[in-house]
């Protein structure tokens, strides 16, 4: 029986799609059967980040409306065995899907796949409700900015209201130099405010833009810091105890961070 994880943030542009692509690829590289669902109807992007934009025939709404079979709409990634994408339609409305239909689809996919990762649209309306409907777990993405943390807090409240307990946090685009000189909130500051468990920290890394340019997730790039961070998150997701990456933050802070996390239970 697979696990459905929604990747959400509230605010747009904090890295939901990039994270979905990287975690999905990371899991597939480790031999898992994975399907990525883009639920951003009308503004799909997971296809281009994955480099699969030329292979779309059917989409999420085609499956839900019965225009095609589920198997026909799943795009098999030829580079990574076991990785599949269910793209969003580009020309439909968010209301073309209901939360009940999403739940049914997720339950169906769970039968065959180890992990179903759902790329959630920005916002808290219909698209968000659809994306979380079938989720067992949630990863909340934020960046160390006031606006992103505020929206993450709102999302955490809404997830709990929808009975998705214990969402876990990914802090994206951390700049160690700025944290060091006191011009960026640290991981510790953000955890203190949001009061949820951390699953990973991703450094700000230009390799993400380069790999997105090519349509090849950074997680497979051995030289990318962000790629390493995503590999770590993948391993934690699979239950391994991996320490949080050293982003050249002061010793004291790092050890405090580790203490806060308590990955033994992860």
């Amino acid at each position: 029986m697979g696990e459905v994880i929604v990747i959400t943030s509230g605010k747009g542009g904090v890295g939901k799609t990039t994270t979905t692509a990287n975690l999905g690829t990371g899991l597939a590289v480790q031999g898992k059967k994975v399907v990525l669902i883009d639920t951003d109807i009308g503004l799909r992007n997971l296809d281009v980040v994955m480099g699969l934009e030329n292979r779309i025939v059917y989409d999420l709404v085609d499956v839900i409306e019965g225009t095609c079979r589920l198997k026909q709409a799943l795009i098999k990634d030829k580079r990574y065995e076991g990785l599949h994408l269910l793209p969003a339609p580009q020309t439909r409305d968010k209301n073309a899907v209901t939360p009940e239909q999403m739940l049914k689809l997720c339950d169906e996919l769970k039968e065959e796949f180890d992990y179903i990762l759902i790329d959630c649209p920005a916002g808290i309306e219909q698209g968000f409700k659809n994306a979380i409907a079938g989720a067992d777990k949630a990863f909340v993405i934020t960046t160390p900015e006031v606006s992103a943390v505020r929206d993450a807090d709102r999302i955490i409240g809404l997830l709990e209201a929808h009975e998705i307990r214990k969402p876990r946090l990914i802090v994206n685009r951390v700049r160690a130099d700025m944290v060091k000189r006191g011009d960026m909130m640290s991981i510790e500051d953000i955890i203190d405010i949001l009061a949820i468990d951390l699953i990973g920290v991703v450094p700000d890394d230009e390799n993400i833009i380069i790999s997105t340019n090519r349509g090849e997730p950074a997680v497979i790039d051995g030289k990318s810091m962000a790629g390493q961070a995503y590999r770590n998150i993948t391993n934690r997701l699979m239950g391994q105890d991996v320490p949080i990456m050293d982003l050249n933050v002061s010793e004291g802070l790092l050890s405090k961070m580790k203490k806060l996390l308590g990955f033994k239970t992860a």
Binding site: P144, V146, D153, R154, G182, M184, S186, D189, I193
Partner: peptide, 18 residues
């Protein structure tokens, strides 16, 4: 530091939001 300002402002806005 600007991060302390950010943290302070966030805490206040979240009291209201929550």
């Amino acid at each position: 530091s600007s991060k302390d300002v950010a943290k302070e402002r966030l805490k206040l806005v979240l009291i209201h939001d929550r």
